[in-house]
Design a protein around this nucleic acid. Sequence first.
RNA 1: UCCUCAGUAGCUCAAUUGGCAGAGCAUUCGGCUGUUAACCGAAGGGUUGUAGGUUCGAGUCCUACCUGAGGAGCCA
Length: 430
Amino acid sequence: MTAYIDKIGQFEGQEVTLRGWLHKRRSSGKIHFLTVRDGTGFIQVVMSKAAVGEETFHRADHLGQETSLIVEGTVRADPRAPGGYEIDVDTLNVVGESRDYPITPKEHGVDYLLDRRHLWIRSPRQQAILRIRHVVVDAVRDFLNSRSFTLADTPIFTPAACEGTTTLFPVQYFDNETAYLAQSGQLYNEANIMALGRVYCFGPTFRAEKSKTRRHLTEFWMVEPEMAFATLNDAIELGEALVVAIIARVLETRRQELETLERDTTSLERVQAPFPRITYDEAVETLKAKGQPFKWGSDFGGTDETVLAEQFDQPFAVHRFPSALKAFYMKPDPDRPELSLSVDILAPEGYGEIIGGGERLDDLDELLARIKKHGLSQKTFEWYLDLRRYGTVPHSGFGMGIERVLTWICGLEHLREAIPYPRTLNRLYP
RNA sequence: UCCUCAGUAGCUCAAUUGGCAGAGCAUUCGGCUGUUAACCGAAGGGUUGUAGGUUCGAGUCCUACCUGAGGAGCCA
């Protein structure tokens, strides 16, 4: 009977076949302790010379870390085992040898590990992160699907900048025209809601910023919901509910992984809607009161975000940023046109911005003026302008960075651990 | 692009004021029937990132370059 470690308790007292990899080996003269992992968990396999005989026992003398193997043995409950069970082995077969595995139980540097990311993901900590990532993605999709959102994927090759400010990756392939890798599905989402009402796109996003910080990747995953007939407030409420749903699902199903990561979950337990909300103006006042040198009209730096986050013990929303700070499609506040109907949701504990969005400009003439003012080509945006010509409606949405959310949930030091194969300024391998 | 820091054994690091280049882990060999970062004993393992310079003598000081990290700007 083939068994998997996460469900091994069902087989107590029974003979099972376990297929996996040798994680670690400890040995005495007449007993081997093999920690085996099979992709679902870790378990200690005990091999005594008396039970298996001289030949099998000596075959296990030199098993290297990460040797793939098939063991047959009896499941036994043991209070000494971290998972509650051990396996007393009868037979052991090596599937693939492994000599001089480069990632040892000792600590390694970041660059060394990233060069071996294809192996690093085998370690317990990285497995835990990737499992939680899966649950986050799953929770996002379930949440949006259950609220009548339709997944409508947006293109990766795009003809121009969605947001003029950031840098794009050019691709030379299409005749007479440079294509760029998408940095947002935003504009296409706006077309899609006019067909489907509520939509989201969920895929990789590319930013050619020369960012060298623990908060940036050049390729990252973003979910972007967009709603027709929706205000800034609707977008904030959706964002809150989404974050709450993700945290609840992770706490519900991935306790063990959070423990592996030694994540103190008390701050996650506190997360509930509604989040504290402050205006940009209030945020500036707070920063000044806390002695930060900050001028109205500039964007928050990393330190500013941390100082603001210290005021709250859960995620919080900052809304109504100056229009000059935000993309051309952001709708101005009717009461104060110098402000935009925009929102950022920031994670607590200094993890920074996880959501950015707002209400979109739905008036044709105003949008035309913005495009001119930003020096963008009207021709490129004709299709986007059509959305204002044929039955425009107020609409809102946001983007949420999956790795940023995961970094916060897992309490990671670096964003690059939150994605299987991180792409940063200087990294394209493996 | 700018600022700061780092680069020594396969890995993580040490090396006092410029004076014999070392430890732990990993590997190999030996020992051990309850280990779980196992332990005990032994062995092998080095062009100190690269190229110059100062000096009787450079891992250490100087110059340039390479690579990486953290941060700024920008953003999710």
